[in-house]
Simulated assay, not measured.
Amino acid sequence: MTEHDQQATTVIARTPDGTALACQHRGQGPPLVLLAGQANDHHWWDGVREDFHGLRSTITLDPRGTGDSDKPEGPYSTVQFADDVVAVLDALGVPRADVYGTSMGGRVAQWLAIRHPGRVRRLVLGCTSPGGPHAVERDTAVRKLLARPDPEAVRRALADLMYSPEWRAAHPGPYRTLGDPRMPAHARRAHLVASNEHDAWNDLPRITAPTLVLHGDQDRLTPPDNLGLLAGRIPGARSRLFAGARHAYFEECRPEAADLVRGFLAEEE
């Protein structure tokens, strides 16, 4: 158990299909939901969640298939993951929250804002895409790197896709964004399929929450052209590119990114 977990209240939420979801509520103040990337549990946010305390309490969860949550057979979908977040909010007695989703968590956050607009006050989408035929997909070389049979080689490739060499030299890890090692194979596959099949393009104009879209300009895992696609599709959305950052811009550009998000969340309605 990490220091972050020791300071958090852990609750088990139940989804309508009976899946148990572990969620963690930490700090005081209006709630901010933090949604992690594909095949990751709540530890994805360990390095930065305290940046929001003092302004917000933070809510994380272990998505189905990860961490201390149930790991049912698939299929999973980003729509289902969004409905799971609603079950977590209900279990915590939170009627409305700010939502910050990164990578696949950003795909989930899109559906949360689309399907449950009354539950989302402000929306931040990081290093993510609209999915479907309109999205800009990663190149073939990246796909080949991530499809290698050697798990350690894949972890090294992921670390390089997440962080620049300069940042890794100054921050040797361990990194929290390389996947939950406790995931069974069926859940890992189900997460991959859910992320690959995401397509919210037609519904993005239905988002009513004020929205901020963030991305690193050197991101090869989810190419940065997706930032413009999302920002152009969501009414009134603002955006920011972080120079020199790869997929995990929220860690590599932590002070600037955190300041930007805090300022956005603090704006008056």
Results as ranks from 00 to 15, higher is better:
residue 188 R to Y: 01
residue 240 R to M: 13
residue 216 G to F: 12
residue 200 A to F: 10
residue 216 G to L: 09
residue 237 A to W: 04
residue 209 A to D: 01
residue 224 P to E: 06
residue 199 D to G: 04
residue 234 I to N: 01
residue 188 R to S: 08
residue 253 C to K: 07
residue 228 G to Q: 10
residue 233 R to G: 15
residue 241 L to V: 05
residue 222 T to V: 15
residue 186 H to F: 03
residue 191 H to F: 07
residue 243 A to S: 11
residue 256 E to T: 14
residue 186 H to G: 09
residue 193 V to I: 08
residue 199 D to W: 01
residue 213 V to S: 06
residue 260 L to G: 11
residue 191 H to A: 09
residue 225 D to M: 08
residue 212 L to D: 12
residue 202 N to Y: 00
residue 240 R to H: 13
residue 245 A to E: 09
residue 252 E to A: 14
residue 230 L to G: 05
residue 241 L to R: 08
residue 225 D to P: 10
residue 218 Q to E: 14
residue 212 L to T: 08
residue 209 A to W: 02
residue 186 H to T: 13
residue 248 A to I: 10
residue 203 D to F: 00
residue 222 T to R: 03
residue 197 E to W: 04
residue 256 E to G: 15
residue 249 Y to P: 00
residue 237 A to K: 07
residue 217 D to Q: 06
residue 194 A to W: 01
residue 226 N to A: 13
residue 208 T to E: 14
residue 218 Q to L: 15
residue 189 R to W: 03
residue 210 P to C: 09
residue 210 P to H: 02
residue 254 R to T: 07
residue 244 G to M: 10
residue 259 D to E: 13
residue 257 A to W: 05
residue 225 D to Q: 15
residue 230 L to D: 11
residue 243 A to Q: 10
residue 221 L to H: 00
residue 215 H to Y: 01
residue 205 P to H: 03
residue 193 V to G: 02
residue 223 P to S: 13
residue 239 S to R: 11
residue 188 R to C: 01
residue 256 E to S: 15
residue 241 L to K: 03
residue 251 E to F: 11
residue 215 H to P: 05
residue 233 R to E: 05
residue 191 H to T: 05
residue 251 E to C: 12
residue 186 H to W: 06
residue 250 F to K: 00
residue 245 A to Q: 05
residue 255 P to K: 12
residue 206 R to T: 15
residue 213 V to T: 05
residue 214 L to F: 08
residue 259 D to S: 14
residue 186 H to R: 14
residue 236 G to M: 08
residue 204 L to Q: 06
residue 194 A to N: 08
residue 189 R to Q: 10
residue 235 P to I: 14
residue 234 I to E: 02
residue 230 L to Y: 01
residue 244 G to F: 04
residue 213 V to K: 01
residue 234 I to F: 01
residue 231 A to D: 05
residue 220 R to C: 09
residue 228 G to Y: 09
residue 204 L to G: 11
residue 238 R to T: 14
residue 247 H to C: 12
residue 260 L to W: 01
residue 257 A to V: 09
residue 254 R to A: 14
residue 234 I to D: 02
residue 247 H to A: 09
residue 224 P to W: 07
residue 261 V to H: 09
residue 246 R to E: 02
residue 197 E to F: 00
residue 228 G to S: 12
residue 222 T to Y: 00
residue 207 I to A: 12
residue 195 S to I: 04
residue 244 G to P: 00
residue 211 T to W: 03
residue 195 S to L: 10
residue 192 L to Q: 12
residue 204 L to W: 06
residue 201 W to V: 14
residue 233 R to S: 14
residue 224 P to C: 08
residue 198 H to D: 06
residue 257 A to Q: 04
residue 224 P to K: 02
residue 212 L to A: 07
residue 217 D to S: 09
residue 189 R to V: 12
residue 205 P to Q: 07
residue 236 G to L: 07
residue 195 S to M: 12
residue 200 A to S: 14
residue 242 F to R: 00
residue 253 C to H: 01
residue 206 R to N: 14
residue 230 L to A: 02
residue 259 D to A: 15
residue 256 E to K: 11
